[in-house]
Design a protein around this nucleic acid. Structure first.
Length: 114
DNA sequence: CTCGTGACTCCCG
DNA sequence: TCGGGAGCCACGA
């Protein structure tokens, strides 16, 4: 009777989070917490991180459009920091002093969330 | 089941 | 402005 074995599919949250990330439009950015909130778990920002690590490739997620709550890239300098910055600038996102992104201009807001 | 991991976030000082 | 600490969640070993 338990037709649905838990190992079959990722948690609903994970699925929704992936979906949310895929909806981030070009030239816009979203924060980890924001994505988690749209997916239904405001405090699962860390889970979003894990998702990026595990599914960004399989699902072709726009991982570079995800930044931290301070409007800055979270990747370590020795990792994809420069890569992410370049990808964003290529989409028209400008970085201010201290490599901060102006949320008033580039933060994405889901049409359905509001 | 317990633990470790991870590109976070909030709260203080 | 910056750093430390606690809280947070799901997954894999």
């Amino acid at each position: 009777m338990n037709r649905r074995t838990k190992t079959q599919s990722p948690a609903l949250f994970t699925q929704r989070a992936i979906d949310v990330i895929k909806r981030i439009p070009r030239g816009r950015v979203a924060t980890y917490g924001q994505i988690a909130a749209y997916a239904g778990e405001p405090r699962a920002a860390r889970q979003v991180v894990w998702i990026l690590h595990s599914y960004s490739d399989k699902h072709r997620l726009p991982w570079h459009r995800v930044v931290n709550g301070k409007g800055r890239i979270s990747l370590p300098r020795h990792q994809g920091y420069g890569d992410q910055k370049r990808r964003l600038e290529k989409e028209g996102v400008k970085f201010g002093n201290g490599d901060t992104i102006d949320f008033k201009r580039y933060l994405w807001s889901s049409p359905r969330a509001k």
